[in-house]
């Protein structure tokens, strides 16, 4: 441990590290969203379907995020639960142009909320209604209604429409999440 880091540690200004889980159906834009937050030199030009998961790191407002970018493919969705236990926040990405699979999204969301590792915790969930630029995209209000988000009482949640290609709406959403996580950490301490 370097001298500077030691000093920073004692003064309590060391950056906090938090884990967030990025989930959602396949082709909803999870990896693209994470790619947007990365430093300029680490960005990948071409995003391929994730097999399994990827670990990425990025920073926001002095909070250091470790994002577990899970694969949304049907056969890997069962594996999300392995990572529920020790995450501080969840980013749930929805393809707002894919009306057909909104019911599948609802199923997956219900499974998530009923999971023993999640249901008793006050864990912030950030929803991204991604691909808002698409012509027939649903608005965030409609998505919230469709998924029945208003029934979630015990967890802070927030939905923001986004466009991962341009980055619209992403910053706003993550700022909310940062705020929430900061609060939970403060209250816990």
């Amino acid at each position: 441990m370097g001298l500077f880091q030691k000093l920073a540690f004692f003064l309590g200004i060391r950056r906090k590290e938090v884990n967030v889980l990025v989930i959602g159906l396949n082709n909803s834009g999870k990896s693209t969203i994470i790619n947007h937050f990365k430093d300029e030199e680490e960005k990948v030009a071409e995003i391929v379907p994730t097999v399994g998961f990827n670990v990425e790191k990025f920073q926001n407002q002095n909070l250091s995020f470790t994002a577990f970018d899970m694969s949304g493919h049907g056969r890997y969705r069962d594996l999300w639960e392995h990572y529920y236990k020790d995450c501080h926040g969840i980013i749930f990405v929805i393809d707002s142009s894919d009306r057909l699979r909104l019911v599948v999204v609802k199923d997956e969301l219900d499974l998530l909320l009923q999971h023993p590792d999640i249901c008793n915790r006050k864990i912030p969930i950030l929803f991204f209604g991604n691909k808002m630029d698409c012509k027939d995209a649903l608005s965030s209000v409609k998505i919230a209604a469709g998924l029945g988000l208003d029934k979630i009482m015990d967890k802070p949640w927030h939905i923001s429409a986004s466009n991962a290609l341009t980055g619209d709406g992403l910053q706003e959403g993550v700022e909310w999440l940062t705020q929430q996580i900061r609060e939970t950490i403060v209250t816990r301490n």
């Binding site: 097999v51 998961f53 990827n54 694969s71 594996l79």
Partner: peptide
Amino acid sequence: DDVIIVTSSLTK
């Protein structure tokens, strides 16, 4: 089981 979970990480 499910060891393919690390495929993307390893590819990276």
